[in-house]
Write a protein that binds this DNA or RNA. Sequence first.
DNA 1: GCGACAG
DNA 2: ATCTTGTCGC
Length: 273
Amino acid sequence: MDGEGASSESSSGNQLENWTEEQDQLKKKLIVYDDFTWKLSSSMEFPQGSEMLKYIGGVDMSFSKEDSSVACACLVVLELPSLRVVHHEFSLLRLHVPYVPGFLAFREAPVLLQLLQKMRDDQHPFYPQVLMVDGNGILHPRGFGLACHLGVLAHLPTIGVGKNLHHVDGLNQSEVRRSLQLKENEHEQVITLVGNSGFTWGVGFRPTLSSLKPIYVSVGHRISLDSAVKIVKITCKYRVPEPIRQADMRSRAYLQKHQTESFKRTAINGSEH
DNA sequence: GCGACAG
DNA sequence: ATCTTGTCGC
């Protein structure tokens, strides 16, 4: 046979190559500056003519402990400045794509896009002006994490929020925490994440006084890091920004409810036969 | 070679 | 991601 011969591992190897290629292609469309018409309510100006930021979206997914392929995706929309949830929707599904570090989007983006698409198709009045994603933006091995991926495909401004640091360009958790320790006396809760290369990947941020563990904010799409951080700040009642926290809690609850009801059905069917 | 590795 | 209860403190 020929030299192109596939070894047992080359199919997965090719998949990663394809995924990498797709990320590199989509990355060409990435916009990393403010590309929206609304204004932040925190600004000192009286933005009489301009639209305000009012609807912030958040997305997250939860997984079943019994069957890790069963998942619930949730999209929430919060209203500013009240931070009240004005809309939520869910999708219960089975996932066949595994989680591979650096390729989270190929697992989670399709269903999250579906949820956004549904709101858009319905011409829903609360369609989000900006979306917070539970996963990184450009803070990613190839500068194109889930938040970027979703943003480009949905053509929506997005912000990446990680609860753990993805080690990239020499960045590491303990360094970040150490820097925050040093800065906490100056009432500084934000530290810029500059890698060995000199590139700014995002920020480490301590939302509350009590949270030792920072969250990691990075640009997703159509927004600057400064604006992203401002928005994260105004949505943090607790460590995790409300849009993501609500999507997290609600997806988890939805999954639990589905599982108990699915259990009841099998229990009834089982006892009646 | 070994370890690290968003969710 | 998920498991897992109470507990210490504002």
